[in-house]
Design a protein around this nucleic acid. Structure first.
Lengths: 325, 325
DNA sequence: AACGGGTACGAAACCGATTACACTCCAACG
DNA sequence: CGTTGGAGTGTAATCGGTTTCGTACCCGTT
């Protein structure tokens, strides 16, 4: 069952070695022979067995990717971009979800390494606890951290400058006349939460007002309730991401608070639904396609062995101003 | 480089055959030997080479999945559910994106087959043009269509009863007193678009009013503009999916049309952002986790060889009523 | 004519597991 | 007491490619 390279070689009247070389496009094969092999392959409808090739050549043309939550539209867009570029380069994507659990993440990394992926792209779900998994992976294959990163891990990373993003938001709100601000973010268990919080604190200076939960719409709703109960609203609410911001907007709308008249609200990420919110959400756009491009550029350099020196690349996000501010 | 099963066998003082049997948990190995092998494996930090095992055993413990668009939150949730269940069953997921292009889809299917996936889960992007890819795949491995399906293809399918969903929406709107309805859907290139359109036409009967574009927010906005320009609004707008509905809501809000007072709007899918819309969107909830469960149940039966008879499973979606109606 | 060097090619080793097959041992059975 | 049968084990074949290595050949130099 199944046509093998032996059949192709036999039909072309050459050895399997020559057939292999011809099929993989190596030089050192006379044009006439190469054509015979390719013709034979076509006639027999030959489908190379990638598994066998992987075993001998020790490369699977497969990249592993571990993501905290596939269903998060920001990550999903990133996955889509990466997958497209891999497919264009004849590689495949083994995708795993960590569910924001470092233990699951560790198991997923192990599973991917067992499958002998050529490299690993990881969005580490925890600033500290993702370190172990990342280290074991890095000992075997090139590893790239995407978007998030692990504290003190000396490996490559590609993402955006979260601090700069928050800085832009704060400046924008200040220019619009906001005097009092609140930051509704997430506990800094991952590096983005940390960087955004740091960015906010540095931008605002003393007397900063900060509420921390997680990156969910539920937390946004809850935080908005808290703010409403607490007394007079601030002039502006800086949210740790768009999902929180959407939760905040929803809760405010339910309480007849007008945005941006009564309070201005801004998010982070520019997920597709930010634009569709009522009012459309001012947010910080992450250049996901650039991130994906850059990620595969760096990873490609690591894979080809040209340049294995760890490299951190921070792209600058851009403020997207809409009517919520 | 790397510990092989030979090293483990040598250390345990048994043959590689016995080591292999012990490690894969087959019976026919004396307990004492099994323990020696497992101990040796642990001591040497043995990592089985899955690629070699796949070559010989002709099974990769890998499932391929082709999705029209990963970034679509509905599909992303489905992918996440499937991935979780596969991981629990020690399998991995090779993910591919077709970008709604049957040619790309075909190439992706080929790539997955080359990688010798054990089975294929496919959300076929086109009612007709996806048939060829699906057929070539089905000739080699068990195939399951998810959510969408190909006309006239006699293979298994798991999804929801789209017609019943639309039917529920129409009845709900009618009960709320809506007399005139419009359907804003997508050209029926995929089976869901087709089924939802059919469902609407059947539910409403003659004199139905239908606008067809694609499943994007942009089309929703455009359709809303069209309706506004056209004259008096209908009592209710039935949207082909939530993304369209969100586009419609956005455009209406920008034109001071009140929902649900002036016009009621309903969507389909219940993506996470449906709840966050202003007003929160009435929609048809697809039971994605049930779909994933059922999908893997059917696929599991096909894989184990117990039951290879094609099976279509239509789950019933449930209407989720929110303030947009 | 002898030699050096590069190209083309085939035979065979190799990647690291699984598994077919043969064999031994021992308990159960007639 | 011989026979049967199943459990346990090892040897070697096998999966289907890639890659190493040796050889043959060709061409240009000395």
């Amino acid at each position: 069952m199944g046509v093998t390279i032996h059949d192709v070689a036999a039909r072309a009247g050459v050895s399997v070695a020559t057939a292999s070389r011809a099929l993989s496009g190596q030089r050192g094969v006379r044009a006439a022979n190469r054509d015979k092999v390719l013709a034979a392959a076509r006639e027999l409808d030959y489908e190379p067995n990638v598994v066998a090739a992987s075993l001998r050549s020790r490369t699977t043309h497969t990249i592993g990717m571990v993501v905290p939550r596939i269903a998060n539209p920001f990550f999903a867009t990133l996955v889509e971009s990466i997958e497209k570029r891999l497919h264009d380069g004849q590689r495949s994507l083994l995708l795993a979800n960590s569910h924001y659990d470092p233990d699951v993440e560790q198991r997923q990394v192990r599973a991917l390494l067992d499958r002998r992926v050529d490299a690993l792209i990881m969005i580490p779900c925890h600033r500290e606890h993702s370190g172990a998994a990342l280290a074991t992976a890095a000992a075997r294959v090139p590893v790239l951290q995407l978007d998030l990163r692990v504290d003190g891990f000396a490996g490559s990373w590609v993402g955006v400058d979260h601090e700069a993003g928050i800085w832009q938001v704060v400046r924008h709100l200040t220019e619009r006349g906001a005097r009092s601000l609140v930051f509704v973010g997430a506990e800094p268990t991952d590096s983005a939460a940390q960087a955004r919080l740091d960015g906010y604190r540095r931008a605002v200076g003393d007397g900063d007002d900060v509420l921390l939960g997680d990156f969910s719409k539920e937390w946004g709703q809850q935080a908005a309730k808290l703010l409403l109960r607490r007394g007079p609203l601030p002039d502006g609410i800086v949210c740790g991401n768009d999902t929180i911001a959407l939760g905040v907007l929803g809760e405010l709308a339910g309480n007849q608070v007008r945005v941006p008249d009564d309070v201005r609200v801004a998010g982070f990420d520019d997920i597709p639904y930010a634009e569709l919110a009522q009012p459309p959400l001012t947010t910080v756009r992450q250049p996901q396609h650039h991130i994906a491009d850059e990620a595969l550029r760096v990873l490609g350099a690591h894979l080809s062995g040209e340049d294995r020196t760890p490299r951190g690349t921070a792209l600058t996000p851009t403020l997207t101003i809409r009517s919520s501010t």
